[in-house]
Amino acid sequence: MLLIACPWCGPRDEAEFHYGGQAHVAYPEDPAALSDEEWARYLFFRDNPEGLFAERWSHTAGCRRWFNAVRDTATNEIHAVYRAGEPRPVIA
């Protein structure tokens, strides 16, 4: 089980959280102008890196806030957590 540090509540068991996929996927500025392929790319295409990945989590069983975390997909180590709306921290 992962131990995830909610930016509000502190470290909690993974079971208290829900996963929200890749973070920082911006909604298209003018969705109506997109072709079907571009829209499908926005909806369904996500990065799948081996290594650092910024992703969204929701502390469902706690404060119920969404936040972002940078997790290493190879080791499951969580390098940073930050509140929604904050920029992705630079990790050396």
């Binding site: 509540c9 909690r12 068991d13 079971a15 208290e16 069983a61 706690g62 404060c63």
Partner: peptide, 10 residues
């Protein structure tokens, strides 16, 4: 105060 799980109940 904490909102958490006790025996899997919120």
């Amino acid at each position: 105060v904490a909102q958490t799980m006790l025996a899997r109940a919120g």
